[in-house]
Design a protein around this nucleic acid. Structure first.
Lengths: 129, 129
DNA sequence: GCGCAAGGTTTACAAGCGTAGTCGATGCAA
DNA sequence: TTGCATCGACTACGCTTGTAAACCTTGCGC
């Protein structure tokens, strides 16, 4: 596995991430569609989205496919890969690479809902099988 | 609680974080001492550390205390607060604010060691009490 | 056929960041 | 007492990011 990307796809910025989310939600999409999804909540204008899309294409995180006179954009980077990378980064940077302290921290900060706890217990049970 | 910081201490960058780690490890420290801790592993020179320390002071994340002709630096921002904030940010941004999916992701990516799992189970047991 | 609208590409520009050199004060050694 | 080493402050500079305008091309409607 993991030969879907030779370079680990340059780091994606925060604003770019918002665009990726839109594409992960549904793809392919035109620039206009992406703007419809994100311009509202982020207060962006069309040119901003265009720039972000270009940068993402340049970074190899998004692919384009011509559709008449415009482009359809699709994510090249899978959301799981991105999320995994970011999670790993955080755990490495802040918790010495170990997940338990992260968990402990969330628990202590009461950032865990009852649902979360139940869900995690379920997952643990499953893993032990 | 939480009146230890009126503004949430401007966001701390990656390089700055390395300096904070040194100060969390031991404080107060002089600039030279901090450099001793971090210049090696990061390949930095003294001026870089000075700049980062200044920026951290400007951001209100580090306090200074004169000691003769030089300064002693101490963290103002607690590591727990920082770590908590960053964790929260990640969980919010990537997992809709819920921790269970993060956990699921780490589990799936086999980012959890056996020790981690054991530890988390222990924590869960404790929380249920 | 021709102008306009729609879409992509280029350029812009301020703020933040990583990294570091220079400057100015000052205490200590000779 | 004078020069030098030391330390913080200021300045620098190229790169990325956030945000967007200007520009260029091209297909479509009149």
């Amino acid at each position: 596995m993991a030969d879907s990307e030779d370079q680990p796809v340059e780091r994606i910025s925060d604003a770019e991430h918002a665009v990726m989310e839109a594409l992960w939600e549904k793809s392919p999409q035109t620039a206009v569609e992406v703007c419809d999804s994100v311009c509202g909540e982020r207060g962006w204008s069309m040119p901003t989205v265009k720039t972000l899309l270009s940068r993402l294409v340049a970074k190899g995180a998004v692919s384009t496919e011509p559709d008449g006179r415009r482009f359809l954009y699709s994510p090249l980077l899978a959301r799981d890969d991105y999320v995994g990378g970011e999670s790993r980064r955080l755990v490495d940077r802040l918790f010495g690479g170990r997940a338990a302290p992260l968990f402990a921290h969330l628990a202590e900060a009461e950032a865990l809902s009852d649902d979360d706890i139940a869900e995690i217990e379920r997952l643990l049970k499953e893993m032990r099988k």
